Amino acid sequence: QVLVIRIKIPNSGAVDWTVHSGPQLLFRDVLDVIGQVLPEATTTAFEYEDEDGDRITVRSDEEMKAMLSYYYSTVMEQQVNGQLIEPLQIFPRAC
């Protein structure tokens, strides 16, 4: 299952990153890619938005798994409803 992660860049749009092994993705892998997209920032975590629009911070593989399972459940709903699949949007955080 292909996963598209949209890395939101403060004040300048976003970069889409296509991942072919989504469920095996590790927290460190995401930080590495964010580091390539935002080389001047030191990113130690990132956030995503849940169904209520609240930002949830991801700082570990466990939290990463929770984010992915949340995302895959929303994708299934979108597929069932015949909607366009939205990329998983993440917001890098420099701490």
Results as ranks from 00 to 15, higher is better:
1 Q>V: 10
1 Q>M: 13
4 V>P: 06
4 V>Y: 14
4 V>A: 03
5 I>N: 00
5 I>L: 14
6 R>V: 00
6 R>I: 02
7 I>L: 05
8 K>M: 14
8 K>L: 06
10 P>I: 02
11 N>E: 11
11 N>Q: 11
11 N>C: 04
14 A>R: 04
16 D>Q: 07
17 W>P: 02
17 W>R: 15
18 T>S: 07
19 V>P: 12
21 S>C: 06
21 S>F: 07
21 S>I: 05
21 S>M: 06
21 S>E: 09
22 G>C: 07
22 G>N: 04
22 G>H: 06
22 G>K: 13
24 Q>C: 06
25 L>D: 00
26 L>V: 11
26 L>G: 12
27 F>N: 04
28 R>T: 14
29 D>S: 03
30 V>T: 01
31 L>E: 04
31 L>M: 09
31 L>T: 08
31 L>Q: 09
31 L>P: 03
32 D>M: 10
33 V>L: 11
33 V>K: 15
37 V>W: 09
39 P>L: 00
39 P>Q: 07
40 E>W: 08
40 E>Y: 06
42 T>K: 15
42 T>R: 14
42 T>P: 06
43 T>V: 13
43 T>P: 09
43 T>C: 11
44 T>Y: 06
44 T>A: 09
45 A>E: 14
46 F>G: 00
46 F>S: 01
46 F>A: 00
46 F>I: 06
47 E>Y: 08
47 E>H: 02
47 E>S: 03
47 E>T: 00
48 Y>T: 00
48 Y>R: 00
49 E>A: 06
50 D>C: 06
50 D>N: 14
52 D>G: 12
52 D>C: 14
53 G>R: 04
53 G>W: 00
53 G>S: 03
56 I>N: 04
57 T>W: 08
57 T>Q: 12
58 V>W: 00
60 S>D: 12
60 S>R: 03
61 D>T: 00
61 D>Y: 04
61 D>S: 03
64 M>K: 04
66 A>G: 10
66 A>P: 14
66 A>K: 10
67 M>F: 03
67 M>W: 03
67 M>K: 02
68 L>N: 01
68 L>I: 10
70 Y>H: 11
71 Y>G: 01
71 Y>N: 00
71 Y>F: 03
73 S>W: 08
74 T>I: 09
75 V>E: 05
77 E>F: 08
77 E>P: 11
77 E>I: 10
77 E>V: 10
77 E>H: 12
77 E>D: 13
78 Q>N: 13
79 Q>I: 08
80 V>T: 13
80 V>M: 11
81 N>D: 15
81 N>P: 12
82 G>I: 03
83 Q>I: 07
84 L>Q: 14
84 L>E: 15
84 L>Y: 11
86 E>I: 01
86 E>S: 08
87 P>D: 00
87 P>C: 03
87 P>N: 03
88 L>F: 03
89 Q>G: 04
89 Q>F: 05
90 I>E: 00
90 I>K: 02
93 R>E: 07
94 A>E: 13
94 A>I: 15
94 A>K: 06
94 A>G: 10
95 C>A: 15
95 C>S: 14
